[in-house]
Design a binder for these strands. Sequence first.
DNA 1: TGATTATTGTTAAATTATTAACATTGGTTT
DNA 2: AAACCAATGTTAATAATTTAACAATAATCA
Lengths: 208, 208
Amino acid sequence: MMKLPGKTVERLSEYRRTLLECLNEKRNFIFSHDLAARLHITAVQVRRDLMLIGYSSVLRKGYDVRELIDTIGKIIDSEESMNVAVIGIGNLGRAVAGYFKGKRSKLNLVASFDNDPQKVNRVISGVKCYPYTDIERMIKELDIRIAILTVPPDFAREITEEAVRFGIKGILNFTTIPLNVPSGVYLEEYDMITSIEKVAYFVKENKI
Amino acid sequence: MMKLPGKTVERLSEYRRTLLECLNEKRNFIFSHDLAARLHITAVQVRRDLMLIGYSSVLRKGYDVRELIDTIGKIIDSEESMNVAVIGIGNLGRAVAGYFKGKRSKLNLVASFDNDPQKVNRVISGVKCYPYTDIERMIKELDIRIAILTVPPDFAREITEEAVRFGIKGILNFTTIPLNVPSGVYLEEYDMITSIEKVAYFVKENKI
DNA sequence: TGATTATTGTTAAATTATTAACATTGGTTT
DNA sequence: AAACCAATGTTAATAATTTAACAATAATCA
Ligand SMILES: NC(=O)c1ccc[n+]([C@@H]2O[C@H](COP(=O)([O-])OP(=O)(O)OC[C@H]3O[C@@H](n4cnc5c(N)ncnc54)[C@H](O)[C@@H]3O)[C@@H](O)[C@H]2O)c1
Ligand SMILES: NC(=O)c1ccc[n+]([C@@H]2O[C@H](COP(=O)([O-])OP(=O)(O)OC[C@H]3O[C@@H](n4cnc5c(N)ncnc54)[C@H](O)[C@@H]3O)[C@@H](O)[C@H]2O)c1
């Protein structure tokens, strides 16, 4: 399977989430335009994405929900589950940890790291917090591949550099500092302020 | 000024954040490639974006940091400041509120709403929490335009429908439910799980 | 001063992403 | 069974976004 466009990967994740909702509703088949409507995109887009992963519908009943969930899993999940850690278990870190814990079977949140003595060696939001000084050892011991970065901006660069050196292969950066990673490490950044400013801009423009 | 592409608006917000950092460092001028490097994009992209907003550099010293900050503000900020509320002041809501409070001069977080009796009528993460039942009155009284939605997924649709009816013009949706809004209302959605799954996918692919 | 260099703004080209078009498939209806 | 229909997979067209190319400008230097 050739590497998929990032946008398609994002949508596959969304398809799966939506399909899981379908299962809850005891819906076993779904048409492309139905799935599309739930996500407010076009049916063509759905069909095109599914074409890229080589999934075909059955009969004229639409896509087999369960089967498609599995197929998407085969594409976007890793074979064995992948371990994730939150670095900086402050306000945002706790929210993410609490939310994430136990959500995805193939992605396990196995640790958090912090340097606040009040926090280390406790279970916070369902996940054990280790002292940051142990990060090298724990990354190796727990085979952590992905880090969610929620430390104060000033520490983001240094911590990233270290985490990568110790074996982290993917970073989701919620700090406001753009990071540098060597090739071979995948970086995804999200800046809330940017999102809100974007909303504000289009609200303003609509008014005119 | 014609309506700018969403991507450009996002970057303008990022440029401004970076330029504010420059001011802190007492840097008063910056070259396009410098600004680009800090954000890990290309200099051409910076120049093209600035072209779109009609900003020109001075001399061969690069862009005047202070001036560019102002220019970007004129483009993406609204004339008078715009009021924002968080709906659902749980884990994520509190993180966002605490982070956002007092960050942007033109965007004021003026209220939060919740239906938990333990939370209403208290100041939480620096912002007053009102009972959800007062939302109609408060949106009007405080002239709230933008809502950040951090309620449990099951309530997202209904709350959105009401908020829009009461005058909300922009929504930043952090719930996992895709929302429907009428035209004239701007919607931005962000799904953390999707981001993490995307990271996991590319980590997996890199390995191969 | 005149050549050189660095940096810009802008047009054009390339790339990426989305949407449209349409022939195909197999069920449904008359 | 013939005509019709709904939905699909795929190719082609369109639109959006990014990158490249390059002439223009002014500072620097020999
Ligand atoms: N709260 C939000 O909604 C929000 C939104 C967007 C971005 N952010 C960004 O996310 C980051 C965290 O935000 P927050 O509100 O959770 O802040 P916070 O201060 O509540 O949390 C930061 C945590 O990092 C820990 N920490 C500090 N230095 C550390 C170090 N050197 N090593 C390990 N841990 C360390 C602190 O002890 C704390 O627990 C910030 O960079 C912020 O800009 C937050
Ligand atoms: N925590 C995260 O990092 C995270 C990440 C991604 C998405 N989300 C989404 O964000 C939302 C909130 O997550 P959370 O972790 O903060 O959950 P939470 O349960 O901590 O917070 C939800 C808040 O909404 C309030 N609420 C419930 N029903 C309400 C109603 N009808 N009207 C007004 N307020 C109501 C609750 O009292 C609570 O304070 C969820 O939809 C979740 O899927 C959270």
